[in-house]
């Protein structure tokens, strides 16, 4: 009896391994193609094959040495700075907002939740120009600070996921802390937050990714200030019809390098994905 169950579990796991490997293959295929392109010696945006005929490291080194036309290192640092600051600000905003909407009870709570839900629904490409002019009224355009504000300004509207998570933390924990004289502020920082690591990881990751992948807002905010571009917008410049053939492989290398900080951040933060945080340690 035990043996057959074990065997079945083993067979089940083998099946899962097979599925996971298959899916990984599909998911990684375009990425592998991208990486291959970044090591490809032959120029051109399109090839009918995946594995390059000749390999080279040039695409990477030249990203950092030939900077007169495309200043990749500078853009990379810009993006890193913007990503770090906007990540900190928006993570704090999202978590505090969701905490307030999940754990605190006040009059405007329900209306606020409804309004926040509705606000995200208007197709917003005209809003970028409005935001640009608002920032301009404050004298903030074409600066990295303005970008940080833009990326973290709307963060509060994405409260749903962490609110849903906070909702699952047993209230009894809060109540016992309150009996010990803890203020709401203390409860949030000392109790709720440590219990919510997976969702904090998710929030940080999403906030960190934003500046690396956006090329629309940054183009409206930065306009002709080429030095303050972020990598995504900068890489886009390599795709003009005059440049794409010569620069595509370098473009691929630039894209691969973007993926590195994000992946590192994730690998580092994965240790907080520990199973059964509330279910295991504190039984609700």
């Amino acid at each position: 009896m035990m043996k057959s169950m074990k065997a079945r579990a083993k067979a089940g796991n083998a099946l899962i391994y097979a599925i996971l490997s298959g899916l990984s293959f599909i998911w990684l295929l375009p990425i592998v193609w991208l990486i291959m392109s970044s090591f490809r010696k032959e120029p051109g945006a399109y090839t009918a094959y995946i594995i390059p005929k000749e390999f080279t490291l040039d695409n990477y080194t030249r990203l950092f040495t030939e900077t007169t036309l495309f200043n990749y290192p500078r853009w990379f640092m810009n993006t890193l700075i913007v990503a770090i600051f906007s990540c900190i600000i928006s993570t704090v905003i999202v978590l505090l907002t969701s905490y307030a909407l999940s754990r605190l009870r006040f009059k405007m709570r329900k209306p606020m939740m409804n309004i926040a839900l509705v606000l995200g629904m208007f197709p917003g490409f005209m809003s970028m120009i409005a935001i640009y002019h608002i920032l301009k009224a404050f004298g903030l355009t074409q600066s990295l600070f303005a970008l940080v504000l833009v990326y973290s300004g709307g963060a509060a509207l994405g409260y749903y996921i962490s609110k849903g998570f906070f909702d699952t933390i047993p209230k009894a924990i809060d109540e016992s802390a309150m009996l010990d004289g803890a203020s709401k502020n203390t409860i949030f920082w000392k109790i709720t937050l440590p219990l919510s690591k997976p969702i904090v990881v998710y929030t940080i990751l999403m906030a960190f990714i934003g500046p690396w992948v956006d090329f629309i807002f940054v183009s409206v905010i930065m306009k002709d200030n080429y030095q303050n571009y972020t990598v995504a917008l900068g890489l886009f410049q390599m795709l003009s019809r005059e440049n794409i053939y010569q620069y595509f492989t370098r473009f691929a290398a630039g894209a691969v390098l973007i993926a590195i900080p994000i992946t590192i951040l994730f690998i580092y933060m994965q240790k907080y994905y520990v199973s059964g945080i509330t279910g295991g340690s504190v039984k609700g």
């Binding site: 990984s24 998911w27 994000i262």
Partner: peptide, 20 residues
């Protein structure tokens, strides 16, 4: 396994969709 799938998030959408 998780990291494998996160790598696809880490590559900007405009790049991966262009490749697609």
């Amino acid at each position: 396994w998780r990291t494998i799938f996160v790598i696809t998030i880490a590559v900007p959408q405009f790049v991966s969709l262009m490749l697609m």
